[in-house]
């Protein structure tokens, strides 16, 4: 979208609010829904990739060293990665305002 959200008027909308820019959902920050964030202890990480597979947001990616990290722009803090991690390498920490 060309304008910031707060400046969009009803006149800026396409017919029927059609979205003409493919893939612009990637601009939607779902990270601010989060009340907890995953914190990684890479010393315990065995690089199995279960967190990557289970993440419902698809926001985890593998680093050059082979570890997995969440993109906090999208991470909703659901905690599934921490729940599934077989070595307890991921802990959920309270977000602070």
């Amino acid at each position: 979208m060309a304008k910031p959200e707060s400046e969009l008027t009803w006149r800026d909308l396409e017919i029927g609010s059609i979205v003409t820019e493919p893939g612009n959902a990637s601009q939607y920050r779902t990270g601010d829904w989060r009340s907890q964030r995953p914190s990684h202890d890479f010393a315990k990480c065995i690089k199995c990739g279960l967190c990557y597979i289970f993440c419902p947001e698809g926001c985890l990616s593998q680093t050059a060293e082979g570890y997995f990290e969440a993109d906090l722009f999208y991470c909703k803090g659901c905690g599934i990665c921490a729940q599934e991690c077989p070595t307890g390498a991921i802990a959920m920490q309270q977000e602070e305002e």
Binding site: E5, L8, T9, W10, R11, D12, L13, S17
Partner: peptide
């Protein structure tokens, strides 16, 4: 944006 869609 919902209010704007309804007004449109």
């Amino acid at each position: 944006i919902y209010t704007e869609t309804k007004w449109a």
